[in-house]
Design a protein around this nucleic acid. Structure first.
Lengths: 108, 108
DNA sequence: CATATATGCAATCTCCAGGTTGCATATTGT
DNA sequence: ACAATATGCAACCTGGAGATTGCATATATG
């Protein structure tokens, strides 16, 4: 696990419709091979493999070899990391807004 | 509000270290001009303006003209939209059905 | 063993994101 | 009016993302 570089890389990995769709499909917890993942997609197998490599690089999925297949499962911790970053930003916004309200209340 | 296209565009907007830094700074709720935002950054003013345009395009910031200045404020609703997407994925994973499927698929 | 299946590796192509420079426009200040 | 400030607009350059094709390798199956 050397992927906790910066949240930007994580968001960048999610910032592609194909990859986002892969994550959405893998969210059911099922492990899928590359061929299975690519079955409904209009792109080549190699393009798909690259996308999965990107997701792997930021820790959003985990790879397991089963025979000649490479099965991919979602890794929810990376999702949590991204969500935590957004929560922090959101919390800071809500906090400062609360302080602004307090100021208005006090100052009149 | 025509920005609720797909979450991928939102994540893509966040998937750049410069833009992520801008959002982090704007999370305090203060409105800042382009010159103010660019003061600590090692990039040109035009590059910064493009980044702010990207954030504007997905609804992450709001622009207000004050005299000759263009002030930017964060728009927390877009942050919430991104967080909600991650929550949905996470919730699906955490569901018992998803975990059971994962166990069956992996463990055999 | 021979063959089909599933994936890995590598070279290549194209396009656009992110950056720059130069000039134009609008607003403030003297 | 004139100069300084703040931004907008446009052309341009470059590296890398996303895709392709072709070939190599490993595993299952007859």
């Amino acid at each position: 696990m050397q992927s906790s570089d910066s949240p930007a890389r994580l968001f960048a990995a999610l910032g592609d419709p194909t990859r986002l769709g892969l994550i959405a499909r893998l969210a059911d917890g099922k492990a899928r091979s590359i061929a299975q993942m690519g079955e409904p997609l209009p792109i080549s197998r190699q393009a798909l493999a690259k996308h999965l490599d990107v997701l792997l690089g930021v820790g959003l999925v985990r790879r397991t070899r089963v025979g000649r297949e490479a099965r991919f499962v979602m890794e929810p911790e990376a999702i949590h990391a991204a969500r935590d970053w957004l929560d922090a930003v959101s919390a800071q916004w809500d906090g400062t807004l609360g302080r602004l309200k307090a100021f208005v209340e006090e100052g009149g």
